[in-house]
């Protein structure tokens, strides 16, 4: 087992859809995509965002783009102009996900 930092193998972008945030994570190469496809599960992401995401996490694969898309429900404090959060649109959440470390074989 070895630990790798997600930020070393991927980049991404996040935004809002109502009170849900979406986070797209893109691997820099095919090998990186194999790693995130295997290890970056919805459960792992849900656990990572404990205290931030209060709903379910959906996960979608876009292999052509070497990317995964996550939709985090109940995450933005009401979303849009209702939210009192500084980051009401979840713009910094992709960076927050890149803080993750993955344990791989």
């Amino acid at each position: 087992m070895k630990k790798i930092k997600l930020i070393d193998i991927a980049h991404g972008r996040s935004g809002d859809k109502g009170d849900a945030a979406n986070i797209g994570i893109i691997a820099y190469d095919e090998n990186g995509y194999k790693i995130i496809q295997k290890h970056l599960t919805a459960e792992r992401v849900k656990k990572h965002f404990e205290g931030i995401c209060f709903g379910k996490v959906e996960r979608f694969e876009l292999p052509n783009l070497r990317a995964l898309n996550f939709v985090l429900h109940n995450t933005l404090g009401g979303g849009g102009t209702v939210s009192l959060k500084l980051d009401a649109q979840g713009k910094t959440l992709a960076a927050a996900l890149l803080r993750m470390e993955l344990e791989i074989e």
Partner: peptide, 16 residues
């Protein structure tokens, strides 16, 4: 590839 891919992932739900 990277700059376009990031925008493609922006504010989407189910990509299909």
């Amino acid at each position: 590839f990277e700059t376009v891919a990031e925008q493609l992932l922006y504010e989407i739900g189910d990509p299909k």
